[in-house]
Every structure is written in C-alpha cells, then in structure tokens.
C-alpha cells in the first residue's frame, strides 16, 4: 500500500514519528568534513525530512545505528557489576537496500555466530525499524548488483523522493497510524538499481586454491596500504571490536568494561601478550580482509559478507580499490586453477 505526500505533509509525518521513534538518517555536518570547507555526512538523529541527505552517500554506514562505536558492557565498583540501564527507545533508520542487506551481516555475527546471541546487540537491534530509501541510480564505486545486495524486501516502509512529492510504501501496519486521513493513497512499489557502472566478478570457488594466499598480487598492498582502517570503519559489514577495561581517574576502584570497533587493518589487531602477532605486513591484512568479505564468510554463513556499498573505495586515502582487487583476485584464481 502506498501514500503520496507533499514535501510539507511528509515533514509533518516526521512530527508524528518522532514522538515514538528516534529517526536516524544520513545527515550533513556542515564544514565538519575531513578537509577544510567540506561537509561530513553520517548517520545521526534527524527531526524532519528536510534534514535527511537523500542524494549523497554517507561516509559512514548505518551500522552505527545497531552497533555503537563505543559501548559500555558493564560498570564495576570493587567486585560488583552493573549493566547499563536498559534502553527503551525505538529507532527508525533510513537506509538504502545495500545497507539493509549489509546489516544482515552484523545480525548474523552477533545473533547467530557462537553459542548465544550478543545480548547488547540483540537488545538494541530489536528496537530498530527500517525505512528503505529507494535507490535506482548508483553512486560512484557502488557495485551492489555484483554482490546481489541491490534488492531487499526487509523493510518496514520504503520511500521515493521526487522533486515535488514523496511516495511511501508501508509494509509494517504499525506505521499506518501515523498517516493522516487526508493523505492520498496510491499504488507504490519501490524500484531497485539493476546495473552499476562498476562490475565485480566475485570468484565463486568452493575451495580457495592454496597458491592464492601466497600470490604476489598481495605484495603491492604491503606498501600501498597505510593500515588506517577507514575501509573497516566505513564498512557496513565489519563488526570486529575490542574489549577494554578502564577505571575512573578519580577512583581507581570504579570503572567500566567496554568495547569499541576494531579494524583488522590497524596495527595491534592480532597482538597477543608476549609479543606474538600475525599478519604483520599490510599486504596480508588486505588479503585477510578481501578473502573474508568474499570467501571465508560465505563458507561459514552461506552468503558473501561484502554488499558492494563501495564505501571502502570512497574513503581509502591511498586510492586502493577493493573492487579492483576482487577483480584481480578473480583473474588470479582462474589462472591458478587452469
């Protein structure tokens, strides 16, 4: 079922929604971009439709909505532990199909991998609803079609924005009550992008040929990659994190255990006490990440991890193309096999 809004009426809809939901969407932070006189676009709370950046890709992904950068696991005073107060807020996240498919990966890791779900993730995730932003034209570096993440039906509402009107599909009846009776009903089903400029040939091998791990194709990344971790922090599917304890400056008997995002490219990711570490050179970190995104993860969970949002390529300061690397890898595999 669909509704047609004027821009004003759509902003009014937000007034209703914000009573029950915190709305998270790509938002512009003017002049807060990495470089002087550039803007930062990332997910944050918006109060009205006009605050949403509809036509640009956010630097950071919406995974922040379900997986905070820093999360307190519990507080401790001497030997007593206390979890943070359970949060009750409901969240409504505006995001594109690739990101909806993308968040299925953190879901899988946090809810399905291992003996039990991560309770922090589960508790937040169940309070998050999706509004799909219709995406029919891809941005630079997008290759969602190659990763089969261009289409989804996993959303509560979907929205199409045109110059003078907004079309809304509601799949979750809970949201019907926010629609004013004077809003005209129409037939509306969102469309999906069916072709990207960038095409990636994802190798579909059951067993990675052993030669690939040692292949010289990874060597160039030893010097090109600077291990900054932007590809991980902007990725919608990266979920690695590190746990840290801290105690308060004013009282060393009280503190907290918390976790923060971690990056498999950044130094220290594999460090163990006693000085042993793995993947010391940045080439093997690149190999590790790439194979994880398009091979290892699928072996374990049945679908590729990467969804082709292209944020890693958007943000690499060294112009390393991850999608280009997959294409190279595909070629190497074919050569190795034949």
């Amino acid at each position: 079922m669909g509704w047609k809004f004027t821009n004003t009426a759509f902003n009014d809809l937000f007034a209703g929604l914000t009573e029950d939901y915190i709305i998270l969407a790509p938002k512009r932070f003017v002049n807060r971009g990495r470089f002087s006189d550039t803007d930062l676009i990332r997910y944050d709370e918006v109060k009205k439709s006009d605050d949403i950046i509809w036509k640009e890709k956010s630097t950071f992904s919406p995974k922040e909505a379900v997986f905070p950068v820093t999360q307190t696991l519990f507080y401790f005073t001497e030997e007593a532990f206390r979890e943070p107060q359970p949060e009750e807020k409901q969240y409504l996240v505006f995001l594109r199909p690739c990101d909806i498919n993308g968040i299925r990966r953190p879901d899988t890791i946090n809810l399905k991998n291992g003996p039990e779900p991560d309770s922090y993730y589960a508790n937040l995730r169940k309070r998050v609803r999706f509004v799909m932003i219709e995406c029919t034209e891809s941005f630079d570096n997008c290759f969602c079609v190659s990763m089969k993440s261009n289409i989804t039906s996993d959303y509560d509402m979907a929205v199409r924005l045109t110059d003078d009107k907004v079309l809304l599909e509601i799949k979750n009846d809970d949201f019907l009550r926010y629609i004013r009776s004077d809003i005209p009903k129409i037939e509306f089903r969102p469309e999906f992008v069916l072709e990207n400029k960038i095409k990636v040939n994802v190798p579909e091998v059951d067993e990675m040929p052993a030669g690939v791990y040692e292949h010289e194709m990874w060597n160039e990344y030893k010097s090109r990659c600077i291990a900054c971790g932007r590809c991980n922090t902007t990725c919608v599917t990266c979920t690695c994190h590190t746990t840290n304890d801290i105690f308060y400056d004013d009282n060393s008997l009280a503190g907290e255990r918390r976790r923060t995002w971690a990056s498999c490219h950044v130094d220290g990711f594999t460090d163990m006490a006693g000085g042993i570490s793995f993947r010391k050179d940045n080439g093997s970190r690149m190999r590790f990440k790439v194979l994880h995104k398009i091979y290892d993860y699928r072996k374990r969970f049945g679908e590729h991890m990467c969804v082709g949002c292209g944020r890693c390529d958007d943000n690499c300061p060294e112009y390393i193309s991850y999608s280009g690397c997959i294409n190279t890898l595909n070629k190497v595999i074919r050569e190795t096999v034949s």
Binding site: F29, V30, N31, R32, G33, R34, F35, S36, L40, R42, T59, F60, V69, C228, G229, R230, N232, T233, T234, W261, S263, V266
Partner: peptide
C-alpha cells in the same frame, strides 16, 4: 594543524567550523 582530523578513521575528530 588539523592532522588528527585528517588521520581519524571514524570522524571522532572533526573540524570546528569556525576558522
């Protein structure tokens, strides 16, 4: 100098828009 902003992979460091 703003190098911390340039290096930060999470935009934890951002620019004060005032110059």
């Amino acid at each position: 100098c703003g190098e911390c902003i340039l290096k930060c992979p999470t935009a934890a460091w951002t620019r004060n828009p005032v110059k």
